[in-house]
Amino acid sequence: MPSSSPIPVGVRLPLAGPEFTPSALLELSRRALELGYETLWVGDHVLLPEKSSSVYPHTVDGARPFRADTPWLDPLLQLTWLAGALPTARLGTSVLILTLRNPVLIAKQLATVSWLTGRPVSLGVGTGWLREEYDAIGVPFEHRATRAKKAIAEIRELLARGRRDYSVRGADDEPRTTSFLMAPTAPAPVEFLWGGFSPVALRLVASSCDGWLPAKQSPEELEGHLRRLKDACDDAHRDFDELKLVVKPGPGPDPRAGGIDKDSLAAYAELGFREAILEMPYDTGGLAGAVATLERVATRSWP
């Protein structure tokens, strides 16, 4: 059923595991769409250390709210699977850790998703917080915002044109510039939504992205970030009103970070946000508990 909330609401799906087998994830996704949620969002980690000195930025005590053996599915494969089963669902990542991956391979995956599904993808992207994950994969943790900006430009070029020049070694082992082709290109739009709110992140949104998808913040904190984002857009000669703003009010990994109801959605709409994401708690109570959460939020958010 369609919702009548001030702005659309999507769902970041729970993580896979014994309580959320493929059939349970699919059933929860179907139920969310029936209740009026519009976009299915999925998160991302590649691998997790059993012990870590990195500070998790989204809880009060800095401790990550999930164990190292928590299953994280590959987000683009999961979205492709969901698209095949749910032909009306909108799809998004919240968020893909962009700089853990080769941008050419991401472009190929996105073009494939776009070609197979014919549907837009809202690609929430970020650079993550877990230094040990970068070390294990063998990519540098430092200067990742600069690399992210270059990666977004490279992916956009490949998705749109299917052509880009790269430096390769010739027969004499000397570097030379060669034009490469990538097919298919992406027939459906892929929008980039940046997930951070640091000064560097806001400048990246203004210069390189289609929108902003910050981690959970209070409305008061968001107002301050929005003022700084508008200033960044002015500096980049970018029209702030072009940006798609997506908010994650909660509940989620830290339940103290807010909630979703008609009043809060109206307040977020007033700030300029165009969509909200319900982040399912890591401890959902299984399929029944997750469905109950969806129903409870829907009841208080739209008739």
Rank of each mutant, 00 (worst) to 15 (best):
I97L: 15
I97Q: 12
L98P: 05
T99F: 01
L100C: 07
L100Y: 11
L100F: 14
N102T: 02
N102Y: 03
V104P: 00
V104I: 12
L105G: 01
L105S: 03
I106R: 10
K108V: 01
L110Q: 09
A111V: 11
A111W: 10
T112W: 07
T112G: 06
V113L: 15
S114A: 15
W115H: 13
W115Q: 13
L116M: 13
T117P: 02
G118S: 02
P120H: 06
V121D: 00
V121Q: 02
S122E: 13
S122V: 01
L123N: 10
G124N: 05
G124T: 09
G126Q: 09
G126F: 06
T127V: 15
T127A: 04
T127D: 00
W129N: 11
L130D: 07
L130N: 05
L130W: 10
R131I: 02
E132W: 05
E132N: 08
E132F: 07
E133S: 07
E133C: 09
E133P: 01
Y134K: 04
A136V: 13
A136E: 10
A136I: 09
I137T: 03
G138N: 03
V139K: 04
V139W: 13
V139I: 12
F141L: 08
R144L: 06
T146E: 14
R147C: 08
A148N: 06
K149H: 05
K149I: 11
I152A: 08
I152S: 02
A153L: 12
A153C: 03
A153Y: 00
A153F: 01
E154Q: 13
I155M: 14
E157G: 03
E157N: 01
A160Q: 15
A160T: 15
R161V: 09
G162P: 07
G162H: 06
R163Y: 02
R163C: 12
R163A: 12
R164W: 00
D165V: 10
D165P: 01
Y166C: 01
Y166H: 13
Y166E: 12
Y166G: 13
A171Q: 13
A171R: 14
A171E: 14
D173G: 04
D173Y: 12
E174G: 03
E174Q: 15
P175Y: 05
R176G: 11
R176V: 02
R176Y: 09
T177N: 05
T178Q: 15
S179C: 05
F180D: 00
L181T: 11
A183Y: 09
A183I: 08
P184I: 10
T185C: 13
T185S: 09
A186F: 11
A186R: 08
P187M: 06
A188E: 05
P189D: 11
E191I: 05
G195C: 03
G196E: 04
F197L: 12
F197V: 05
S198H: 03
S198V: 06
V200K: 12
L202F: 04
L202H: 01
